[in-house]
Design a binder for these strands. Sequence first.
DNA 1: AAGTTACC
DNA 2: TATT
Length: 200
Amino acid sequence: MARLLLRGFDIRKAYLDVAAQTQLIEALRPILKSAPLFRPTTPSGKEMSVRMTSAGAFGWVTDKAGYRYQAQHPKGMEWPAIPAPILEIWRNLASNEHDPDCCLINYYGEGARMGLHQDKDEADFSWPVLSVSLGDDALFRIGNTSRGGKTESIWLNSGDVVIMGGPARLTYHGVDRIRFGSSKLLPKGGRINLTLRVAN
DNA sequence: AAGTTACC
DNA sequence: TATT
């Protein structure tokens, strides 16, 4: 598997071909129908520009009460199961022993961004976070395990799989910009980012 | 504080 | 690893 060295952190990277990307989009269609995208509000009361939903036993949510994983969509229903082709990516690239219990689905429309943050709402940081990029190019930024200091940016393209484990697991990271319309994978444009995690 | 802005 |  390819390796990226960013800010001194060793990050694994793989690529899904266009047929695999298309299969994932097809698998996501019923998920998005039964668990619609919503726009979360942070505890500080600000709306995020990214829209999101989840699949799996747990989904990540935020609202005025805080950040957490919970078993229900904000509208009250259970999250749909993680589709088999998505689980297969985890089993092939992250672990064949322990499946993820959360697939966070983030949709970046035109102008959507995500500020630098750590993924730290999970119970056990020894499992990696696996990210799949689908659709438009995204300028991904990574910093350090604490705020401040230099950062480094790379463009992520459709089909890219990035696995952040080990020392990279708790690095600050975010998305500064989407090159809206740069990919034809999603007819209406934008980027879907899947993040697979062991949340609980 | 997964908001903003942006490496200074 | 947290009533941030």
